[in-house]
């Protein structure tokens, strides 16, 4: 009898904990309004020169691996390649279920500490890469009817002069630049051979930037962004360190470390951070609800 009770006690406690930890929050916290969004992940090399550019390439691959693990579709949309290796900047398009919700916490400064391949004296360098995750809406069938901007607020420029143009020239000149006049946001795109495609992609990025801006403003206005929330507001904040000599990746916001760096960089291990951060966000939301 006693044994039975002990056994039942254990299983009931476990169930209670599950209910409390996982089921309750989902009932109390309103469902995410951004669950349907995909994402554009922008990576920019920060301090550290070429080493930072090399880390842009490494981080890009780490995101691709993580996306692959979730069955998301990741495409490099734009990149500024350097001859010495790495990228000055890059934009990764990631499409799938809950992409934005899980990846939005990646926005911020990522710090890498390692001995660069180019460093002969074996000194450890510290470099940074800035990541910005933008919401990407799949439904772009009618750009004219977009509430984020109207077409007459956007100046479209084709880059450079083609001389006489037309039959006189068969050089590829497909670069375009968009300027959203009210906000001053500009987007340049030159990665595709087709001007049509570059234009489509530039509009996609512009739309993502404007949606990001709108969402940030909404958050501020609703005042539900408390200090503890890992909000998208502060992108200058150092959020994570990748320490190669110590084989460790640490997220500074939740104090979480993973002690197997290759697993994070090449094995999709970033997913663990995504989920831990999303979980922490859940708890913050829950706290919000309970305090209000």
């Amino acid at each position: 009898m006693r044994a039975l009770a002990v056994e039942e006690h254990a299983s009931l406690t476990a169930r209670l904990l599950t209910l409390f930890d996982e089921t309750l929050p989902t009932l109390v916290v309103p469902p995410s309004s951004t669950a349907h969004l995909s994402a554009l992940v922008e990576l920019k090399s920060g301090v550290g020169g070429q080493e930072a550019s090399l880390f842009v390439a490494d981080l890009l691959r780490a995101y691709e691996c993580a996306a692959h693990k979730y069955g998301w579709k990741a495409t490099v949309m734009s990149s500024d390649t350097l001859d010495q290796g790495g990228f000055r900047d890059a934009i990764l398009e990631v499409k799938g279920e809950r992409v934005y919700d899980l990846m939005r916490w990646e926005s911020g400064v990522h710090r890498v500490q390692r001995i660069p391949l180019t460093e002969s004296s074996g000194r450890i360098h510290t470099s940074t890469v800035t990541v910005i995750v933008l919401p990407l809406s799949e439904d772009q069938s009618q750009p004219e009817k977009d509430d984020l901007f109207s077409m007459d607020e956007v100046k479209l420029e084709v880059m450079r002069s083609r001389g006489a143009g037309g039959q006189h020239v068969n050089k590829t000149e497909s670069a375009v630049r968009l300027t959203h006049i009210p906000s001053g946001i500009t987007v340049s795109m030159q990665d595709e051979r087709s001007q049509h495609q570059n234009r489509r992609r530039a509009f996609q990025i512009l739309r993502a930037r404007l949606m990001d801006r709108k969402m940030t403003q909404d958050v501020v206005e609703r005042r539900d962004a408390r200090r503890k929330l890992v909000s998208s507001a502060d992108r200058g904040e150092k959020i994570r360190t990748y320490n190669y000599p110590q084989d460790r990746v640490t997220d500074h916001r939740i104090g979480m470390s993973i002690m197997n760096l290759p697993a994070v960089m090449e094995g999709g291990g970033l997913c663990d951070f995504f989920e831990a951060l999303e979980h922490s966000h859940y708890h913050d939301c829950l706290e919000e609800v309970l305090n209000s």
Partner: peptide, 24 residues
């Protein structure tokens, strides 16, 4: 080949390569 609007058309010398002005 050469992109032309959403299409990707075949190109073959010496036939004129489609131009972006024409695409527009």
């Amino acid at each position: 080949n050469q992109p032309f609007g959403p299409l990707n058309l075949l190109t073959r010398p010496p036939v004129l390569i489609p131009r972006p002005e024409t695409e527009d």
